[in-house]
Amino acid sequence: MKEENLPSIKELEEYVRQGKLMGFKCKKCGHKEVTPFVYCPRCGSSEVEVVELPKTGKVVTYTIQWVAPERFLNEVPYAWCVVELDDGTMVSGWIPFISKPEDLPIGQKVRMVKSYKPGVYFEKVKE
């Protein structure tokens, strides 16, 4: 998908490599997602804009991957997680060096950081 003014998935991945999280926002109802849409999945409006999302949020749920997909074979064990960003937008990402549930309580504060590693890379934030 490459609408005028809307970034392609390739461009979104490039933003991630630069340490930025971009999202799609419905101008009508305010709904935000990281997955591309040209009509809002919540209200159906076609008024869509691209916004930069906050880098911090909290862990909603996660798994500790002991068997990983190809690009992550060398990272095991790590947590793949769902994070609710400070503005309420939901994203997925991963956190290195997590091997047991005590390492990552649900609700843990995290921050997205720029990394040479693949994907959306989060670190735990000390409160």
Binding site: T63, Q65, P69, Y78, W80, G93, P118
Partner: peptide, 10 residues
């Protein structure tokens, strides 16, 4: 948006 961040299907 999921597997690309390290999620396997399980």
């Amino acid at each position: 948006f999921e597997a690309v961040n390290g999620a396997s299907f399980p």
